[in-house]
Amino acid sequence: MRQVELTGKTADQTKSEILTDVTTDTARENSGALNNVFEKVKVQKEIDVQVQVTKKLGKNASKAVADYANSQSMKLRAQDQEAAA
């Protein structure tokens, strides 16, 4: 009686609305769970490549910065010598 007052439906009506065809045999298929497709070896290879590239970039970048700084320094020294002469 109280069920009808609260919801406007009998317990059987409510039960029939939530009844599904999912059973314990089909629950896993209908659960919506994600499949684990993480490829550890593939990801590790990609990370290894990125590490190597980063190391080489670090070496090349520091040399490039040093070369640029030296060339700028030489230009400024030349300008200073010209101004002094």
Rank of each mutant, 00 (worst) to 15 (best):
50 Q>I: 10
84 A>F: 07
76 L>E: 03
49 V>R: 14
61 A>S: 08
12 D>M: 06
58 G>E: 04
18 I>H: 04
81 Q>L: 09
47 I>Y: 15
16 S>T: 11
17 E>P: 04
60 N>C: 00
85 A>F: 02
23 T>P: 01
17 E>S: 09
77 R>Q: 07
36 N>M: 04
22 V>H: 08
7 T>W: 12
69 A>H: 00
13 Q>C: 08
41 V>W: 00
75 K>C: 01
28 R>E: 11
32 G>Y: 08
12 D>C: 00
54 T>V: 13
4 V>C: 08
66 A>T: 06
46 E>Y: 07
57 L>H: 03
83 A>P: 00
72 Q>W: 01
45 K>R: 15
54 T>H: 14
49 V>M: 12
68 Y>S: 06
69 A>K: 06
21 D>N: 13
35 N>T: 14
60 N>I: 01
53 V>N: 12
41 V>L: 05
40 K>P: 09
84 A>Q: 07
63 K>G: 02
47 I>R: 15
67 D>Q: 05
74 M>A: 11
39 E>M: 03
28 R>I: 10
62 S>F: 06
69 A>W: 00
83 A>L: 09
16 S>H: 06
26 T>R: 01
37 V>H: 01
59 K>N: 14
36 N>R: 07
40 K>T: 13
27 A>L: 08
12 D>K: 09
69 A>S: 07
82 E>V: 11
84 A>W: 00
9 K>P: 03
78 A>M: 07
69 A>I: 06
39 E>H: 04
85 A>I: 07
67 D>F: 02
39 E>L: 04
13 Q>S: 12
79 Q>K: 08
67 D>V: 05
23 T>G: 02
45 K>V: 15
68 Y>H: 06
10 T>W: 10
1 M>C: 10
62 S>W: 04
59 K>C: 09
57 L>Y: 05
20 T>N: 05
70 N>Y: 02
71 S>Q: 04
47 I>K: 15
22 V>K: 12
67 D>A: 08
47 I>G: 13
20 T>R: 04
1 M>S: 13
77 R>M: 02
13 Q>Y: 03
43 V>E: 11
32 G>H: 08
51 V>K: 14
70 N>T: 11
73 S>M: 07
45 K>H: 13
55 K>Q: 06
65 V>G: 01
56 K>I: 10
77 R>L: 03
45 K>Q: 15
71 S>T: 04
51 V>W: 11
81 Q>F: 03
3 Q>K: 09
30 N>E: 11
7 T>M: 10
45 K>S: 15
7 T>H: 11
3 Q>N: 13
46 E>G: 14
43 V>F: 04
25 D>G: 10
42 K>I: 12
58 G>M: 05
16 S>I: 04
36 N>T: 07
68 Y>Q: 05
16 S>D: 13
12 D>N: 04
82 E>W: 06
34 L>T: 07
18 I>S: 03
67 D>M: 02
4 V>G: 00
41 V>F: 00
6 L>I: 15
44 Q>M: 15
72 Q>E: 05
5 E>F: 09
60 N>H: 02
2 R>P: 12
14 T>W: 09
14 T>A: 12
16 S>W: 00
38 F>V: 07
2 R>Y: 12
75 K>I: 00
34 L>D: 11
50 Q>T: 09
82 E>S: 11
1 M>K: 08
